[in-house]
Write a protein that binds this DNA or RNA. Structure first.
Lengths: 185, 185
DNA sequence: TCTAAGTGCGTACAAACGTACGCACTTTGT
DNA sequence: ACAAAGTGCGTACGTTTGTACGCACTTAGA
């Protein structure tokens, strides 16, 4: 008896394709992301993509969703580990400044994700989920209005920094977060 | 005598093509921006694009540069008109909240521009120029370190807002700007 | 009015694209 | 050992793409 289920030969293949998709996006951009480039990068045959995914858009959607999940998990971990508000300020500073939590490669892909999300409802929804989850993580340590302001900074500062030549000043970022935490209620 | 110069029939055509390019980007995204779609939107024949522009990338570059120029001019105007720092805070609040200076359509195109800039040096340079000019505009009213923090907010808040369902609270934005202006030296 | 030079575009083409589909292969139940 | 069913992919097809190019048209000087 048992259902008609058979065992897949390579259960990790789907994930490998999604990883390769993010790599292609980071290197070439969404506008030059194709089935063939993803297949080459992942080291799988072209037909494997159309077998596992309904369309190219479906691949991009799932790849972006995986990225957003992975990033919001790191955000959540960094913030829930902080014992008090001051430590939370330091954690947020790390999130903004460091390459530890969010690499510059990920900022690049995020730019692409936001652009793509404006033309794809599923990815737009993923952006919204990510935004809400990051705000929830902040809400443990900051009042609701401060969360919004800090969230905007977390969004804007690394993005801005992408075009800057000089490295980001940690002290400045930290002072700004503290100022918002103390003044915005 | 006289140079071999003749008069062009339609000197505005180049600009019209660039306008149409931004319209196509806003509606379909860079990844679905093609010669033919631009030509249809602009109401010009396909050959006209390859005549006026070297390549599709060249069209995108010039379109994005035109947008950045137009936006940094509006930023500059709004800020230099402010008589003092408090008025400048209000002006920045307007820039962030209002659809008056930067429309949501432009935020959409900005997302696309940032994504594209990661894979195109000319557009990356345009982003950098825009960043520096907007910081110069702020420098009239705020100390240098405050400029960076405020700049990050100008960047991040509208971007964040793009995924939010509720409208942006003007009071909160204004209070945040004032807090930064007073506390960051 | 005629000529030469430069403008502007219709059309064509090779390359690259997304996707469908038939077929070999593997596994399970008998 | 055999049949049935599901897995996975090589290949091919029709479409769309960016771009080149020949040719009609317009204009300025003589």
């Amino acid at each position: 008896m048992g259902g008609p289920r058979r065992v897949a030969n390579d259960p990790l293949r789907k994930q490998r394709i999604l990883d390769a998709t993010l790599a292609v996006i980071a290197e070439h951009g969404v506008h030059r992301t194709t089935h063939r480039r993803i297949a080459d990068t992942a080291g799988v045959p072209l037909g494997s993509l159309t077998y596992h995914f309904e369309s190219l858009d479906a691949i991009l959607e799932q790849a972006f969703e995986a990225l957003a999940d992975s990033m919001s998990e790191r955000y959540s971990t960094a913030l829930t580990e902080a014992p008090d508000q001051l430590a939370a300020c330091a954690a947020v500073t790390d999130l903004i400044c460091g390459d530890d939590y969010v690499t510059s490669r990920e900022v690049t892909i995020l730019h692409e994700m936001y652009g793509y999300a404006n033309h794809n409802p599923a990815v737009a929804e993923a952006c919204r989920r990510w935004l809400l989850r990051s705000r929830d993580s902040l809400a443990v340590h900051f009042p609701p209005r401060a969360c919004r302001a800090i969230d905007a900074l977390i969004e804007g500062w690394p993005m801005h920094q992408a075009w800057e030549r000089e490295p980001l000043e940690r002290d400045l970022v930290h002072a700004t977060i503290v100022a918002i935490a103390e003044r915005i209620r």
